[in-house]
């Protein structure tokens, strides 16, 4: 059981690839410069959504200035810990996990320099599936730029979803499978500009936002378990036996889910300022390349 879980979604070749690059995680001008610059926009999105939901849940009460404070956060595929550190600094009790041991040692080492992080940040070399063996569930589960690197996206999403507390939040970021993303993230970033090591991305593994929405429109499913994962691209919903209310209403359009259930926001890179921006809500074609996805687990 645990073996199945350990290796079911982790792609060994991908792990080897990132382990090789792990020393560069904290080089702000190097291989992961794009991610360093993307990080503030991710955090901004997380904070916006938490604030917004707080407002919906408790109308009339002012939202706390720091919406992450005291929450339990899980960062799956934390890499060097770029997001984990930010979450921990904002007061979330953060656990960062990664299937690459060298990533975890880089992340731990880096965090150890910072006296502010030791209280709220922890790293483990493990997989999301292994965490299911433990009872702990999280207010926020994040998995940034991971989905496009896993073996079985449906099973991975299912695992992520199970780790979320009822009423909690799942944040993902990934890349849409479009001609634009092929051009920008693979042709330009890897082959022309050489900003990202060749082979970092595989276009066929990219996932469109509509596919994520339709996954959660059918999630959780109450039909019996199927062991085999589907091939990449086509997401089939994996089972969960606890609850049956779908996370996203099945009737909402896939490109525009209900605001209180899910949201897709584009991440736009401005090459002149060398920085990432959160696209305005509902911006046209914003989710054609890099995008953020948020979905909330129903309270019941």
């Amino acid at each position: 059981m645990s073996l199945r879980r350990l290796y079911s979604t982790v792609n060994n070749a991908e792990i080897a690839h990132f382990s090789k690059l792990s020393a560069h995680w904290w080089d702000e001008h190097g291989e992961f410069a794009f991610l360093h610059k993307m990080n503030p926009a991710r955090v901004q999105f997380i904070q916006q959504k938490l604030k917004e939901i707080h407002h919906d849940d408790h109308p009339g009460t002012p939202a706390p200035s720091n919406s992450l404070k005291g929450l339990d956060a899980l960062d799956i595929g934390c890499g060097g810990g770029l997001l984990s550190e930010s979450l921990a600094r904002l007061g979330a009790n953060t656990l960062g996990i990664d299937a690459s041991e060298s990533n975890i040692s880089i992340a731990s080492h880096h965090a150890s320099h910072d006296p502010k992080l030791s209280r709220s940040l922890e790293y483990q070399h493990t997989t999301s599936e292994s965490l299911l063996d433990h009872p702990k569930r999280y207010d926020i589960v994040c998995s940034m730029e991971v989905l496009e690197h896993v073996n079985n996206p449906a099973l991975f999403l299912d695992t992520c979803a199970q780790l979320v507390k009822p009423g909690g939040h799942l944040f993902l970021s990934t890349i849409a499978r479009t001609p634009l993303s092929d051009f920008l993230t693979i042709f330009l970033a890897e082959h022309v500009l050489r900003k990202v090591t060749v082979g970092t991305h595989t276009h066929s593994k990219f996932i469109n936002s509509t596919e994520l929405v339709s996954f959660f429109q059918k999630y959780p499913r109450s039909k019996p378990k199927t062991e085999s994962g589907s091939s990449s691209g086509e997401l089939s919903t994996s089972p969960s036996d606890t609850d049956t209310v779908p996370w996203i209403s099945p009737h909402s359009p896939a490109n525009e889910p209900m605001r209180t259930q899910a949201e897709i926001r584009g991440l736009i890179y401005n090459p002149l300022q060398a920085n990432w921006y959160l696209a305005p809500r509902g911006a046209w074609a914003a989710a054609e390349c890099n995008y953020l996805f948020w979905v909330r687990k129903p309270l019941v």
């Binding site: 975890i104 040692s105 150890s112 502010k116 483990q124 070399h125 965490l131």
Partner: peptide, 29 residues
């Protein structure tokens, strides 16, 4: 202003604990 960091070992999974959390945390401040 930085309170001494009495490290709070929160999560349970003991195996594969990183170096940082095996050591008792120094009073960094």
């Amino acid at each position: 202003l930085v309170p001494s960091s009495t490290s709070r070992i929160c999560c349970v999974v003991a195996k594969n604990h990183s170096k940082l959390f095996l050591k008792p945390t120094r009073r960094l401040s």
